[in-house]
Write a protein that binds this DNA or RNA. Structure first.
Length: 307
DNA sequence: GATAGATTTCTCTCGTAGCG
DNA sequence: CGCTACGAGAGAAATCTATC
């Protein structure tokens, strides 16, 4: 006879109520069924758990020892049930998300904070990485979700949705151009310009309108990070053109943000590992990102893949 | 006699193996 | 793959035993 959960339920019920009749009421079975379950339970454990004294079931010392363990087992089952409810209602779990540096300086934190506030049992790890690293991590299933520069396809990564943002011009407060409605390439003729080095693809697109209009800037500072460019601008070192996420995190007491014309678009992508099924929690976080992006000024969701 | 537990018998369900 | 037979286990009903 093998030990089973039903026998444990009968044992626990008899221990707690003191009689087979009351235990039967709790278990919604007949009293003989409880007697049989207890008998099978004793066969399974190999010793008697009740003394049949004066027609009553009296727990043996071994039963008392066993009851403590059984209580823990049922507490564990209760935790499993609660966890299942939490997972079903997307309240529990762990998320690992990778975002490109532009979004890891404020935007991702705002979305994540609001998301976690509604789900006390959820924990989240946020990695700020280059787009290439995010894609590699997604393909390796080290991330649940990633946000990165669009256009770097990988067979191990499936797109949730894409969005497009327009680059903005950032200038020191008090700069002669800081009050213009928008900034054009010609406005920056001769200006000290802080350029992005490492992000070649983005740099080429920023440089293009200046080169095609024959506008010469004074590029004396190169920096790999948009946040660093913003900091240089805040120090009065020059002007720059960056993504709007980084611009929004700049110190607005020291930096003015203006639209740049013609628009320079950055396409970005939210994606997940193609080999793993997305949990309800991952889907919910993707929804939260989508909502956060929709609320972002000057941003367009260019594609939305359902599910 | 009332109550509680044990035993026997029967039915039902479910899983598995065998077969076409 | 679907059907059938079989066995194990769970549970109910009836009945018996022990105790107060």
């Amino acid at each position: 006879m093998q030990l089973n959960l039903r026998q444990l339920e009968a044992f626990k019920a008899v221990m707690e109520t003191g009689t087979a009749i009351h235990a039967a009421e709790i278990l919604n079975v007949s009293q003989p069924a409880v007697s049989k379950l207890i008998a099978n339970f004793e066969r399974a454990v190999g010793f008697e758990v009740f003394d049949r004294a004066h027609g009553r079931l009296a727990p043996t010392p071994e039963a008392v020892m066993l009851y403590n363990v059984v209580e823990h087992a049922f507490a564990s089952v209760a935790r499993i049930e609660q966890s299942a409810v939490d997972i079903r209602e997307r309240r529990d779990g762990r998320l690992t998300v990778g975002v490109m540096p532009a979004l890891s300086a404020g935007f991702a934190q705002r979305v994540a904070t609001a998301f976690l506030a509604r789900r006390p049992q959820v924990s989240l790890t946020l990695h700020g990485r280059s787009s290439q690293k995010i894609i590699e991590s997604l393909a390796g299933q080290q991330l649940d979700l990633g946000i990165f520069a669009a256009g770097l396809d990988h067979p191990g990564v499936s797109t949730d949705f894409q969005f497009r943002v327009a680059a903005v011009c950032i200038l020191p407060r008090g700069h002669r151009l800081a009050n213009k409605a928008h900034i054009e390439p010609a406005d920056l003729e001769g200006e000290s310009f802080i350029s992005l080095t490492m992000l070649d693809r983005i740099r080429a697109r920023v440089d293009h309108p200046f080169e095609s209009a024959g506008i010469r800037r004074s590029i004396r500072i190169d920096t790999p990070m948009a946040a660093s460019a913003c900091a240089f601008v805040a120090q009065g070192a020059g002007v720059s053109i960056v993504d709007p996420f980084s611009a929004m995190e700049a110190d607005d007491r020291k930096v003015a943000v203006r639209p740049f014309v013609p628009a320079i678009h950055f396409d970005m992508e939210v994606a997940h590992p193609s080999r793993s099924r997305r949990s309800q929690l991952v889907l919910a976080f993707a929804d939260a990102l989508r909502d956060g992006l929709r609320a972002y000024p000057g941003l367009t969701l260019v594609e939305s893949v359902p599910g």
